[in-house]
Design a protein around this nucleic acid. Structure first.
Lengths: 143, 143
DNA sequence: TTCTAATTAGAAATTAATTCTATTTAGTAC
DNA sequence: GTACTAAATAGAATTAATTTCTAATTAGAA
């Protein structure tokens, strides 16, 4: 995965820290918060500010390379998503693994909103929470 | 609507402020934040603390009488929902009106997660954002 | 190599939400 | 109606996450 090229295609400079942030997420296969990412970065960079992490996550998120998670606890989480087509995710509440879902009822929603409610759909948020195959087997308890 | 009875059925005391909070939401037909509710309460009560509002919203939300909104700006919002059956909502991003949706792809999601991913669905979050019929007509610009 | 706009560090500020303690109150028992 | 007790509240203080600010640094173009 050419993180260097990905970042430049977004019109951003390929700074070592920006690249590292993207790589950490790409290798995680689960969602991470800014502070968690910051801690991982501190093993590679002796000077790294938390605002830098926040700023980069926001930029990469705006560029569509990573996805911002809407979490009930109001903290920010992000995960890497190389699948650019519209789709949704199954999030494991035990291990945080994120997996793609095929299902999307978009057409049906649009039809109901436009026909019945006479409104217009701008976007929809759809996330499925549960236990992934590994965590189902191990009877993991979500944190 | 007997707010007094509703509150007592949750095992909570029917204090004037708690009743007022529930009434404000029930009469709003849109989602409101704690501070907005607090401002409305201040016209009725000369002494009313913001922590009281937060605490009551959390309690009423736990009781299922009102619903906590997951909002991209990470602030808390709540709306009154007297429809106890499982369903989802269409939220107008201009005027904040909340309307019930029939659509729910629950069975299909469960089938995909269990059959394909071998996981188990615990819950799903599904919200549709757009412009309601009134706001579509008036070309309202979301705030 | 030089230059410039983008990026960063680190401190400070902001904002929403929560905690704490003393006081008040709803609802039960009498 | 009065007394009682657990629940609820006010208001100040605190917490925690995120954002803003300014001066210094750096990536990448010229």
């Amino acid at each position: 995965m050419d993180t260097n090229r990905i970042v430049k295609e977004l019109g951003l400079k390929a700074t070592p820290k920006r690249i590292a942030i993207l790589e950490i997420l790409a290798e995680a296969f689960c969602y991470l918060g800014p502070e968690e990412i910051w801690r991982k970065l501190q093993t590679r960079f002796k000077r790294i500010g938390l605002p830098t992490v926040y700023r980069n996550l926001e930029e990469l998120s705006n560029g569509g390379v990573i996805i911002k998670i809407i979490h009930p606890n109001r903290k920010l989480y992000y995960y890497y998503c190389n699948n650019t087509s519209h789709h949704h995710h199954f999030v494991c509440i035990a291990c945080r693994r994120v997996q793609d879902l095929e299902f999307c009822g978009e057409e049906k929603i649009i039809r109901e909103v436009e026909d019945t409610l006479k409104g217009k759909v701008v976007s929809h948020l759809f996330q499925v929470y549960g236990l992934c195959s590994d965590c189902t087997l191990s009877h993991a308890v979500p944190t």
